[in-house]
Amino acid sequence: MEIDIRKIDEIIERYDKSEESLLAILQDFQHTFRYVPEQGMKRISEVLDIPESKIYGVGTFYKALSLKPVGRHTCKVCTGTACHLKGAHTLTDIIGKELDVEPGETTRDGRFTLQTVNCVGACALAPVVMVDDDDYYEGSSPQDVLKNLRKYK
């Protein structure tokens, strides 16, 4: 994927030139490019004067960051305790079957990345599926979830 270096600089510019900004910059990369590009990490190293190895360490430690592009939408199946008890495992299987991916993988058309996450804090909806940042679906009827997923292009 071709990454616009100006966009990278634009993101780095938003923050103070200190190590404290590292995680936030990487998160903005993730948000903008749907992954953390290598050029981006190199650029941070130059601008913030942090060794690349350290940036790589942070980039691979946190689950919110990915070194490979994720799909246009992320489908997060919550596997928190309440969801686990109410069948999150089965729900993951069903969604995985529909999208033809395993958890952690991205569909071939780049539409969805399927993830399992630890509790999105909406236990009353358990088992719950979260799509992107704003959409939550109650998963007690898997068929309804699948219907909703089809809305995302």
């Binding site: 596997t79 928190g80 305790t81 309440a82 969801c83 686990h84 630890n118 509790c119 804090g121 909406a122 236990c123």
Partner: peptide, 10 residues
């Protein structure tokens, strides 16, 4: 608030 099953602080 990372404990699965907790959403008070949220």
């Amino acid at each position: 608030e990372g404990d699965p099953g907790a959403f008070m602080d949220r």
